[in-house]
Design a protein around this nucleic acid. Sequence first.
DNA 1: ATATATGATTAAGA
DNA 2: TCTTAATCATATAT
Length: 323
Amino acid sequence: MKPALFSVLCEIKEKTVSSIRGIQEEGPPDAQLLRLDNMLLAEGVSRPKKQGRGAAAAASAAAPGGRPSDRGLEHSGYRAKLSQIRQLYHSELEKYEQACREFTRHVTSLLQEQSRVRPVSPMEIAHMVGVIHSKFNSIQMQLKQSTCEAVMTLRARFLDARRKRQNFSKQATEVLNEYFYSHLSNPYPSEEAKEELARRGGISVSQVSNWFGNKRIRYKKNMRKFQEEATIYTAKTAVDATEVRGPGCQASCPSISHSSSSGPFPLTGPRDALVHLQTLACLQPTPRGGGLLAQARGGWPGKQMPTASPTGNPSSITSDASN
DNA sequence: ATATATGATTAAGA
DNA sequence: TCTTAATCATATAT
């Protein structure tokens, strides 16, 4: 009886097997899945499959700018939440994969058991496994999608938070203004100077750059408004200059400043006088012709100096630091 | 509540 | 890449 039934089933099978073959795979969601995968990878949520140690490096490399020392503090909160997301993602993923394995095993053993009473080809089992995997993959994709969403919102929140500005500390503005007004004729701090200012003000280098960019343009826009500030800080730096100048400004302060710009001043000495004259000139209602004014007004030729260049002309370094 | 000050971002130029 | 200039969005002063 049993062999007869088996053969009948075989016959029926012959007719239906083609339809099974026809179903086969479905491929389209690959693109989206790839997109999600790439994003998760770029965000450092999922690690590179083969190189486990690459995760941290990838995460830091994904940070914009590429200056690792720049924004470490601001990222700490972001990092924490990101790792939280990552942890959740991986635990969920692991759960899904385990469930998938178990289910696959179960189905496989079931089919093998049934193959004793009805014809079940290995290909069919493989097909079933494929179907199961695709189902679980779609679930995984949902997980990835929601993870991506979480990352995106976190990112948005972080960026918003970064955009919410916070005024610099007194110390920072002090330091920045001091530098600005004592280098009024060429307020373009070199990279090293920026680092120094950042260190002394407790802010980042890019914040120093932002500050100087804003300051230059706003100072130039109407100097009258900054006259008071200028006198304050020039007086302050004048005092500083006569006092100890040791620990703050090292020999690294190049400040080729004056000689480079359009200002053909012998200077080296009367920097303060120059500034004072400038501020006086700013008070003129018709600032058209002022020679000194022209320096600052049309001035700041923008030619950024060799700054980091190691072989900067040593002859012109005479001025600021020593006075 | 409005005005000003200010840090950050963006586009465009060299 | 760094700058200027304009602009955004908020902080602070009025």
